[in-house]
Nucleic acid binder design. Structure first.
Lengths: 133, 133
DNA sequence: CTAGGAACTAGAGTCGTCTCTAGGTCAAGA
DNA sequence: TCTTGACCTAGAGACGACTCTAGTTCCTAG
């Protein structure tokens, strides 16, 4: 059932949140797991699997994996069985980068929270004085 | 003592991790809390406070605050007392964005960890078979 | 006196990731 | 028939944040 669903580029844009432009761009960049089938008039026909794959790509992009590396990964998947170790390497490497990113972000968050606290206290004290008058 | 320390652009680059180019760029973009003093020959002379301020800017940038918004914040600080509420708004808004970013990143991390787990198991099972032979 | 190194300015170039434009096809509805 | 709307391609443009270049000044050491 699911496998038979046929989606236009517009529908895929809707359900992934990507723009139609971005979808064509991603295809040109070779980050679709397999060739998108074409319907009458040369129109792209996507399946649910394409959408699922795209959703994963979106996650990878969101977490900062560059397009060329997503392409490398995609190519491995396209090649089929036998290169799982290489895929695993890419994922592990990225995982480590994301981990570092999260640590960094937490540091930034700590600083910001600290500053917000200081300003909040100050602003509150000003407000209290104004009321007290 | 600290306040009297004089630093060249190169020294500041060293201790902030920014490039000399980036330092000049940041200055041109108006994200230094106060005018950088110039020494003989028109050379920039930085103080420890400048370095501290830059370090904060780096944190804000790292967490995704765009340069123009850092400039807005910087301008408020330059203006002096009386606009603390506006500064607080900027910081709170950014804090919220960072929070969302962290949630997103955690989602990505979960997915990646999930996939890494699957591939790891698979690779292990292949390795086990190879040894078993 | 010359060479090296660090600094200066203004402005051009780069990189990644889209985003948009121009010009066209095709099918369905008024 | 005419219009609308979704789609197509190839290629140009936008944007943010640097990064680099060219040409110069200045100081210090050999």
């Amino acid at each position: 059932m699911l496998g038979l669903m046929q989606l236009s580029i517009g529908q895929v844009a809707e359900r992934t949140g990507l723009s139609v432009h971005a979808l064509r761009f991603y295809e040109k960049e070779g980050i679709l797991a397999h060739q998108v089938h074409r319907g009458p008039g040369g129109r792209r026909v996507y399946t649910q699997q394409d959408v699922d794959w795209l959703r994963m790509c979106i996650m990878l992009r969101m977490s900062g994996m560059p397009v060329p590396e997503i392409r490398r990964y995609t190519e491995l998947v396209r090649q089929g069985d036998g290169n799982e170790l290489q895929r695993l390497d890419i994922l592990k490497e990225h995982q480590e980068r994301v981990r570092q990113q999260m640590v960094q972000l937490q540091d930034c968050m700590d600083l910001i929270t600290h500053k917000v606290g200081i300003y909040q206290d100050y602003v509150n004290s000003i407000a209290a004085k104004a009321i007290g008058q």
